[in-house]
Nucleic acid binder design. Structure first.
Length: 411
RNA sequence: GGAGAGGUUCCCGAGUGGUUAAAGGGAGCAGACUGUAAAUCUGCCGGCUCAGCCUUCGGAGGUUCGAAUCCUCCCCUCUCCA
């Protein structure tokens, strides 16, 4: 069995670790490790993919991962990496978000038979008593030292509430709690969590006299300097309701050349020699590597079936295959009554959500970026009507990459 | 609580009575080029019934023929002091 530490290392997962040699030794035998996920939204997004993949790797190598839902800590709000105070969320919001995330996580990690655990820190944080907590836990923390932590230092400029200041103590408490009750010896997380994780290891050393470990992942940015998973249009979610498998696939296939190799090693389970081979491809051929990346990433998140469908849809739309089954292409439905004798193109582009406003649709069309069934639309008021229907649908295209099938149903 | 600075269109940031839907930059969109990549060039970039109209410059009032720009009150942020 390969040591996970080495797997992490060769795949570029490690930014910082407490002690490389001790960790490698520790990981030679099955251990329990954890990563916390904040239920700030009803779904995780691509930005959380690296931590999720790391837990999956741990499990594949025989370790027991714990995915910790931070419902309790989320009530406080983590100031790390945020430049302003987070809006306080209600219990209800957080709980319902946690439900969604739980379901999602199961696609990546097998939670059956105790092979992995899903816990929620609200279970032990909420019942805490303030005075007891201060006396038992708070006394181990030095404010002087906390203020030196990177995550707080940034916020000292723009404002940090006392509520948020306490976040570190709670996360430290989590780590200690999981060590105590689940024998958890390693906490992983994004590099912005380094300070929080160390605080937990420190606390445990003070209380228990035991050494436990921290490992952080690099903050991933794309070659053009954006945060992973953030697009102009918003986050790329793991929930198919929020980001369809088609869009998900498209996100990956549009990867910058410079990111292909890195992303293959982060976001697929392909062996490194295969990744090396793929990323050696040059020029146009590199698209083959992107295709593998998109396919594998979609498969891991949405399943083989969805991956096949979206890949086929992409190939049809982008011209390598004949159009026949377009199930996975984004669809907008309307009845033949609504279509009537025809609708002005700019209205159709707006109503189908290809454009946000009618003005935007007019602009798009007048700039020559709008197509119906592959034909460029000459003017904004061109009518799209029954004559344009092919296979019960009309294929719209905005710009080079955005496709939409308008599905016409009998009324 | 006291003193000062400030809140402008997605972001940064000009603008101190009319020529301002508001400079400039970034982001974004479209076209050309191309490999569903990058770079580059060109155009666009509040809304709408689109060469006209409507709604914007923290909020509410007021002055004025006319305000993002002046006055009043309120809200919020930052800096210094307590």
């Amino acid at each position: 069995m390969k040591n996970v530490y080495d797997i992490f290392k060769e795949r570029g997962f490690i930014e910082q670790a407490t002690d490389e040699n001790m960790l490698r030794e520790l990981l030679a035998k099955p251990i329990t490790c954890y990563i916390g996920f904040d239920p700030t939204a009803k779904s995780l997004h691509v930005g959380s993919l690296l931590p999720i993949m790391s837990l999956a790797h741990m499990q594949r190598e025989g370790h027991r991962p714990i995915a910790l839902l931070g419902s309790g800590t989320c009530l406080v709000g983590d100031p790390s990496g945020k430049d302003e105070i987070r809006p306080v969320m209600t219990r209800e919001e957080i709980d319902s978000n946690a439900e969604g995330i739980k379901a999602q996580m199961s696609h990546f990690i097998d939670f059956t038979n105790g092979k992995a655990l899903m816990l929620n820190n609200a279970d032990w944080l909420v019942p805490l008593n303030y005075i007891d907590f201060l006396r038992d836990i708070g006394r181990h923390f030095s404010v002087n030292r906390m203020l030196g932590a990177e995550s707080y230092r940034q916020r000292l400029e723009s404002g940090l509430s006392f509520l948020e200041f306490n976040y570190m103590l709670l996360q430290a408490y989590d780590f200690w709690y999981l060590f105590k009750n689940y024998d958890c010896l390693l906490q992983m997380g994004g590099n912005d969590q380094w300070g929080n994780i160390l605080a937990g290891a420190d606390l445990t050393r003070r209380i228990e006299g035991k050494i436990i470990h921290a490992l952080t992942f690099p903050l991933i940015t794309t070659a053009d300097g954006n945060k992973m998973g953030k697009t102009h249009r918003g986050a790329i979610w793991l929930d198919p309701e929020l980001t369809s498998p088609y869009e998900y696939y498209q996100y990956w296939i549009n990867t910058d050349d410079r990111d292909v190799r890195r992303f293959l090693s982060y976001f697929t389970f392909l062996p490194m020699h295969e990744i090396e081979r793929l990323s050696r491809l040059k020029g146009e051929d590199l698209r083959k590597a992107k295709d593998v990346l998109a396919y594998e990433a979609t498969k891991i998140c949405h399943g083989q079936d969805a991956a096949n469908k979206t890949r086929s849809a992409a190939r049809q739309l982008f011209g390598q295959e004949v159009m026949e089954d377009s199930e996975a292409v984004p669809t907008y439905s309307m009845t033949s009554d609504e279509l009537g004798e025809g609708i002005q193109a700019y209205i159709l582009f707006k109503d189908s959500d290809l454009c946000a406003t009618r003005s935007e649709a007019r602009r798009l069309i007048s700039q020559g970026g709008a197509y119906v069934n592959g034909e460029r639309i000459p003017s904004f008021d061109t009518r799209v009507g029954p004559d344009d229907i092919q296979n019960n649908a009309i294929l719209l295209r905005a710009g080079k990459k955005k496709y939409l099938r308008v599905c016409i149903q009998d009324s």
